[in-house]
């Protein structure tokens, strides 16, 4: 173990942190939007909406993300018509493919998390809303959604950390995120312990940071549930 190698490698790897964050935030944003849509489909009570959403979650949660990335990056160019369509702008670029694969994944997982939150909202509250003459849309927006979000938040935080870890898979399709750079550095120096362990510690710190900030958000959103001192 040579500390100098790790100290040399760290700044080089940290140059990729921007790309890691871009992947994380874009996939999280798109994926969460997708999840809300899928959630609405699942709880719509119409089988022709909820069944496709269920199938979607089943497929994306049942296959490895790496396989999904390869299907999108290596597989989709097989289709001539796709290469001539507008979508090609996203799909010819490894970054676009990685964001797409990660977002589709997040969509599937977050749907389940949100559904858990929605299902845990007490029936009585919704009945009270109905008795007050609220429409079902009103009940969803003013009763179900705020309570469901609070319950789903801890699991959502864990999902962000999973996503952070999954962004490392982008290195398999030539992207130079932190892991991609680390692999190049190891190929040059052949010092896997120094390089990979120091990078792992960077990821661990980022995960810790995400956990801490999510705790803050949880405390803020759940502030009415905590007893005030004095």
């Amino acid at each position: 173990m040579k500390v100098e190698i790790a100290l040399d490698a760290l700044p080089r790897m940290l140059a990729g942190i921007g790309l890691t964050f871009q992947l994380l935030l874009l996939a999280l944003g798109i994926g969460t939007a997708l999840a809300v849509l899928l959630l609405l489909m699942r709880i719509s009570g119409r089988w022709w909406l909820s069944l496709p959403a269920q199938a979607y979650c089943y497929v994306f949660r049942g296959t490895p993300i790496l396989v999904q990335i390869f299907i999108i990056y290596y597989g989709l160019p097989q289709f001539e018509w796709l290469r001539e369509s507008v979508l090609w702008v996203v799909l010819r670029d490894p970054f676009g493919c990685a964001v797409l694969a990660l977002a589709l994944n997040v969509g599937a997982y977050v749907t389940e998390i949100l559904r858990g939150g929605v299902l845990s909202v007490e029936r009585g509250l919704l009945e009270a809303g109905a008795a007050l003459g609220m429409s079902s849309t009103h009940r969803f927006v003013y009763i179900t959604a705020p309570l469901a979000v609070r319950i789903a938040l801890p699991a959502y935080g864990n999902e962000i950390i999973s996503l952070l870890k999954s962004t490392a898979l982008a290195s398999t399709i030539t992207l130079a995120d932190m892991t991609g750079i680390a692999r190049t550095v190891v190929a040059e120096t052949f010092a896997p312990y120094e390089v990979f362990i120091s990078l792992a510690l960077v990821y661990v710190s980022l995960a810790w940071l995400i956990q801490r900030s999510m705790h803050r958000v949880e405390a803020r959103i759940g502030r009415y549930a905590t007893r005030r001192a004095g």
């Binding site: 490392a168 896997p192 990979f196």
Partner: peptide, 22 residues
């Protein structure tokens, strides 16, 4: 638990393989 829950799986695979090889 802190180390392995916060590290990407792919990194652990690479570390174990190349580390053990060295």
């Amino acid at each position: 638990t802190v180390f392995f829950r916060g590290t990407p799986e792919i990194l652990v695979v690479l570390l174990l393989y190349f580390g053990s090889a060295v």
